[in-house]
Every structure is written in C-alpha cells, then in structure tokens.
Nucleic acid binder design. Structure first.
Length: 282
DNA sequence: GACCAGGAAGAGT
DNA sequence: ACTCTTCATGGT
C-alpha cells in the first residue's frame, strides 16, 4: 500500500482537515480509515503519526488535494495575532484547507444554505447517486459528482427526489448556465478575489457567503472570509462586540466582519476563518 | 411542536 | 442601498 511520510516541521491532521466541515463527501470508518470521492477517484486514506497510508490516487494527487505543498507553519504564524485565535490554532493544529473540485464545491454550497451539515451531506450524496457515474471500490459502490449537463438531463423535476427544497431551482438554474464546468472554473480561477466573487454571485443560489466558501475551498482565494451564523457569533463575541449576534445578518455587517478579519488576520484570513469555525462549540 | 441550520431571492421601501 | 418575508427540509 502506498504511503507518504510527512515532514515533521509541516503539521498535518487528517482528522481535523476532513471533519471541520469544509468537505461533505468524506466518511471516517470505525477502523479510522477515511473514504472519499474526489473527481473520478475513490480515495482511502489514514494517518498514523507522520505517516499517511492511502490508495486510489498517486502521491502527487494526495499532496495537491490536501495542500501538503503549502507552508502551513508560515500561514499559522501570520494569522496567530491574538490569544483567542491562538487557542483555536492549538486545538486543531494541522488542519489544512483542501483543494476541492470547483463545480462540486459550487453545488455543495448552493445546497448548504440554511441547513445543517448532515442534511447537506445527504443532498450531495443524493445528487451524486442519481446523476453521477458509478464507481466500485473494495466491494462498495460510490458515485462521482455529475457534470452540469447530467444534473439537468431529466429536466427540473428530475431533481425532486434529491429533496433539495427551494434550492432545487437554484441547482437547476446554475447547472443550466454553467454548460462547461472546466472552462467555467478556469475562467474564475484567473480572476482576482473581488472579481471572481462577483462572477460567482451571478449564479442562482450563490450569495456572499456561498461565494466566499467556493473561493476559499475550491479556488485558493485565501483572502475570502465566509461569514455564517457560527462565525458571526464568534466574531461578535470575541472581536466585534458592537455587532449584535441575533438579528439577521445584513450585507453591511457581513462586510464589516470581512474587512475586520482581513485587517486583523491578514491575507490568509480564510485559514483563520476555518480554525475559528473548527473550534466552534456545538 | 418549537427552534435551528456553513443563506439567498424577491418585493417593497 | 436598506429592511422584511418567504423559501423546504431535516436535526435536536
């Protein structure tokens, strides 16, 4: 079985990385192996200390997907600007942002609005099962995440059994407008953060928060700082006490939080966001 | 049953 | 440019 030895000066935690809520298609089995579908591959991976054992993809793929080529120590040093974020970093040290496939990530966060994580996971799985390609791996069946043309192949009502609620028409609309996912993703990735964000927000069902998640998790725009109810709560409690945490989040407040985070945590504030989110109390 | 969840769109100001 | 309302589903 292929394996990969991690540098001791570059921390990585597979568990923190896959259970922090940035991905929806990974499962940890009882024997501490993780199984996930990425692109057209099924990957099986586990960590024992500084050793990663895996199958389903070449080493280069693993390194790229988990951002193992990124200098995490330097990033953590740059965002470690106060005692609270310091505690969050210590709690989940080794958490890395992964590089998600952009199209799947986009639909995932369209499906995420006003929902909890188990529900989001079921929706993504349901879309993949219905429209994706079947893959067998170690005697079990998995599915790739479908292209836009596959998602719309049965018309609007084809999505009904995926139980997306009011997000159904967003998924259908966005899948209709993005005809070629690869070209679309290439075009977005060439844009600077602000322009890419505007472009993403032209898609149905993609607002400021979903756009920031997509930019952070799929396009490596690390200056994004997604603000959901948890982050808003944390920021109001620890950094911006003048913000109230229980009225609806306005665009103004969103912007205030983002600007503060960018100034306080720096250009890698997106990584700070993920450490804050991972440290949330449920 | 009430309340909440990695919010966004549309209508009305 | 700001509120306010509504949206469908499932977890707790």
């Amino acid at each position: 079985m292929p394996c990969l030895t991690l540098r001791h000066d570059q921390p990585f935690s597979l568990d923190a990385t896959l259970s922090c809520g940035q991905v929806f298609r990974w499962n940890r089995m009882d024997d501490s192996w993780w199984y996930g579908v990425v692109g057209d591959r099924v990957i099986r991976i586990r960590q024992d200390g500084n050793r990663l054992t895996y199958e389903g993809a070449p080493a280069s793929f693993i390194v790229h997907y988990f951002s193992l080529d990124t200098d995490l120590v330097a990033i953590l040093n740059s965002i470690d600007t106060d005692p609270f974020i310091h505690a969050c970093i210590e709690k989940n040290r080794g958490l890395r942002l992964v590089r998600q496939p952009p199209w799947e990530c986009t639909i995932s966060y369209i499906c995420s609005t006003n929902s909890n994580i188990p529900t989001i996971r079921r929706r993504i799985a349901s879309i993949a099962e219905k429209f994706g390609k079947r893959i067998e791996f170690r005697g079990r069946v998995y599915h790739t995440f479908p292209e836009p043309s596959s998602i719309i192949c049965e018309g609007h009502s084809g999505l009904t059994e995926c139980r997306l609620g009011y997000r159904q028409s967003y998924v259908f609309g966005t899948s209709s407008s993005v005809t070629n996912a690869k070209d679309w993703a290439n075009a977005i990735s060439r844009l600077p953060y602000a322009d890419a964000r505007k472009e993403l927000m032209t898609l149905e069902g993609v607002g400021p928060k979903a756009a920031d998640c997509i930019l952070l998790f799929a396009f490596q725009k690390y200056e994004a700082f997604p603000v959901d109810v948890w982050i808003r709560r944390i920021m109001a409690e620890h950094y911006l006490p003048e913000l109230s945490a229980d009225t609806p989040l306005t665009n103004r407040d969103y912007d205030t939080i983002h600007r503060f985070a960018r100034r306080h945590f720096g250009n890698y504030c997106g990584w700070a966001q993920e450490y804050l989110y991972a440290g949330r109390v449920r």
